[in-house]
Amino acid sequence: MGSRRSVTFGTRRRGELFDALIGLFLAEGFAHLTLDDIAARLRCSKSTLYTLAGSKEQLVRAATVHFFRGATDEVERRVAGVRGPRAQITAYLEAVGGALDAASDQFMADLDAFAPAREVYEQNTRIAARRVQQMIADGVAAGEFRDVHAAFAADLAATMMTRIQQRTVQVNTGLDDAAAYRELAAILTGGIDA
């Protein structure tokens, strides 16, 4: 019984550390931080950080995976109660934008510059595009959307999602991520209206 409690505490502590780490990275980025800096900011030892990952690079990748896993869970929770493909696509894209609201420009720049973290982000964008593709296909099957090529529409969404997350849309239009995702949802669902 004691070991179960310590595992639960250890798992909880690990999750708390990752959450704090993600908060730090989202606010300030990570490229400029050393392991000593991170340990000091999280009020833990470097040996504690090494229980999470074997190096700073692995820690950044693990934190990125943890961030996207949590963001995906939150996005899916927000979409779960929504009925109808149009409303689901809108809720989904707005939730994705909301999940990225906390990400500073520095975090996004660091993410783009660090290949292991960028790969995690790109993988999540591909997963999101497949999710949008399925919602579009469901909408076509339900007669809510005209008969469009769902993979093309999803690829269009994925391209814009990448541009939003890389801050290209913000630079070119002035729209923040949440507003850009709302616009994408409106254009996408309006463009495939039955």
Rank of each mutant, 00 (worst) to 15 (best):
V60T: 03
A129M: 09
R14C: 01
I136K: 03
G70C: 12
A153G: 05
D73C: 08
D138W: 12
A53F: 07
V148C: 07
S47P: 02
L24E: 07
I192Q: 11
L59V: 12
A20P: 01
M135E: 02
D177Y: 05
G190D: 10
F68Y: 15
Q123L: 12
F68C: 12
Y121M: 14
V82D: 06
A63Q: 04
A153D: 01
T72P: 01
R77F: 11
T173E: 10
F114H: 13
T64K: 08
R43H: 06
G2M: 10
S47I: 09
A128N: 07
G139Q: 06
V79H: 04
T90R: 10
Q133E: 12
T72Y: 06
R13S: 11
L175D: 07
G15I: 00
R126T: 03
G84M: 07
L156D: 06
A103D: 10
T162Q: 09
V75W: 06
I89A: 08
A99G: 15
A113G: 11
A63W: 04
S3Y: 13
A63R: 03
F67A: 08
N124D: 11
M108Q: 07
T8R: 14
Q165K: 08
E57N: 15
M108W: 00
A185H: 09
A53K: 00
F107H: 10
V96C: 13
A103V: 04
Y50A: 05
R131W: 00
K56F: 12
T162K: 13
A157C: 13
